[in-house]
């Protein structure tokens, strides 16, 4: 995504997270200028932390009961259905821009997930899936013997 030099510079010199965020965003946009975003549905953002990852997806109007989230090894699958408003006889659309239908998306994660501890929440139309890294794969501190 970004050159190693720029990355190190950004880490060391910027005390302000806002500038850092802006820089990361710029790198992201310019590193794939022709196509900054994928066209899969739903679009996802992945946040990395020490304990694992958080994957978020914008799914406005979805029914959380009907969202299906499954984790196998290092892959996460989100599938569900977005239903169009059922119109009665005599009612008609003036405009229909919101997409509807079934969707499925599988994402490969950079580590194996502890499937038991995966937690998902859905609020304000945004799905949050917290994916903790499995204990076996967590980095271990190695002490040096003298």
């Amino acid at each position: 995504m970004y050159g190693p030099v720029l990355w190190r510079f950004g880490r060391a010199m910027d005390p302000w997270p806002e500038i850092q965020r802006l820089q990361q965003e710029m790198n992201r946009i310019f590193s794939s200028a022709s196509q900054p975003y994928g066209h899969e549905f739903p679009a996802i953002n992945a946040w990395a932390g020490e304990e694992g990852m958080v994957v978020t997806a914008e799914l406005p109007g979805a029914d959380p009961e009907k969202l299906d989230i499954s984790v196998v090894g290092d892959s996460l699958t989100i599938s569900g259905n977005r239903e169009a408003e059922a119109l009665k006889a005599g009612e008609s659309y003036h405009r229909q821009e919101r997409s509807c239908g079934r969707f499925t998306r599988t994402i490969q994660l950079p580590f194996h997930v502890d499937a038991v501890k995966v937690a998902a929440t859905y609020e304000r139309g945004i799905l949050n899936v917290v994916l903790p890294r499995s204990e076996a794969e967590k980095p271990k501190k190695i002490s040096i013997k003298s």
Partner: peptide, 22 residues
């Protein structure tokens, strides 16, 4: 935001996708 607009006999209904908004 993406919108759907439909008309019923009594009203015009507008639906807008605004994820993250409460």
């Amino acid at each position: 935001p993406r919108v759907d607009i439909y008309e019923t006999s009594e009203a015009i209904v507008l639906l807008a996708d605004m994820p993250g908004v409460d």
